[in-house]
Computed example of a mutant assay.
Amino acid sequence: MSQKSYRVIQWATGTVGKVSLRHFIENPAFELVGVLVTNPEKVGKDAGELVDLPPTGVLATNDVEAIIALDADCVLFAPMLQDIDMVCRLLSSGKNVVSTIGPFFTTDFSKAEVEQLEAAAQEGGVSFHGCGIHPGFIGDIMPMTLTRLMDRIDRIQVFEIANKLVSPSVYIEFMGFGLTPEELSARPNCMEYAMPTFGESMAMVLAGLGKQVENLTEKHEIALARNDIAYPGGVIRAGTVAGQHWEWTMWTEGKPLLLYHLYYVMGEDMEPNWGLGATSRHRIVFEGNPEFEMTLTASPDAEGKHPFLGIIWTALLGATAIPQVCDAKPGVLTHFDLGVVRPQGLIR
């Protein structure tokens, strides 16, 4: 295991980027050399100030060319939306890139982007890795790891249940909560590419099990608020969208082998209720022989509530993979290529 310090750049400092930025500042395995921000109010501020830490001497900038010119081992790329051309520029400049927004695995949907990334990585002599909590971990490397406990697999179901009333975020507005059902169906859907993106995780599992993808289907359900629901960002009015359930099913050999469920809810005062309870969690259910399930959730906070850790986990899954991505051979790396990631600097 390498003991060297990795020179890193944090690209974007939103909800995910702030977590990884703090990790880089506090973890001796990393040396922060650059921070790219898109908010003009953050330009010129010390990186430490952005995450309530002492000064680091590294000032945030929105100058892309200055960032590309930096001498760095890796960029943690965490904007709200993907920019493959920019990632390729970073790779071509000789910087490894870990992206929290994929792509995660080669499918018909992602093939062109993966080929573009592979060419840029080879040009720069570096590597690219896409990961996150879901997609990028709970729906691919975690179930693949647990399949070793199975004698026969009939079906695998993966659940992400996020109570956004307990853990508010920008995704409340982004996903259309508080709209009427008519408004939600009429506007451009922010989840338009969710099915093929989650499909990358599903395809990775099928590939690991030696099977081919035959079909991928989608179902979307909504729940409406029974009463007004107040949260720090506003109010979800009675009769508007307070819960959404996305279900994606991947078929192989004529059967639904993988089902992924994404439940985002604003508490429990909605109809239908779905019986989820108030706890945010990730859950994987294995059907076959033997049958078992795994639930992953945050420990209760001071109020006894279980916050949703998806944002934090997304950032840390990217940050902790950086040493092995930097030390790997050039190219696009999936979880299969990285093997068992060995995080550095966590005991401090």
Rank of each mutant, 00 (worst) to 15 (best):
G239M: 07
Q212Y: 00
H245V: 06
A225S: 08
G243N: 08
D269V: 02
G234W: 00
Y263W: 14
V235H: 01
V241D: 07
H261C: 09
N227T: 14
T249H: 09
K255R: 14
R226S: 09
L276M: 09
V213L: 15
M270I: 11
N273R: 12
L257A: 04
W274I: 11
E218Y: 11
T240R: 04
A223W: 09
V241Q: 06
L216P: 01
H245P: 11
E271C: 00
D269K: 05
H220Y: 07
G208C: 09
M250S: 06
P272C: 07
G267Y: 03
R237M: 01
H220R: 15
G208Q: 09
R237N: 03
P256Q: 11
T252M: 09
T252S: 15
T240Q: 07
A238E: 06
V213D: 03
L262Q: 10
T240K: 04
T249M: 10
G239F: 05
L262N: 13
Y231P: 00
Y260M: 13
W248H: 13
A225V: 05
E221I: 01
G239D: 02
Y231W: 12
H261K: 10
Q244G: 12
Y263N: 10
T249P: 02
I222Q: 10
N215L: 11
N227R: 13
M266A: 04
T217D: 10
L259V: 15
L257I: 12
L206C: 07
E218M: 11
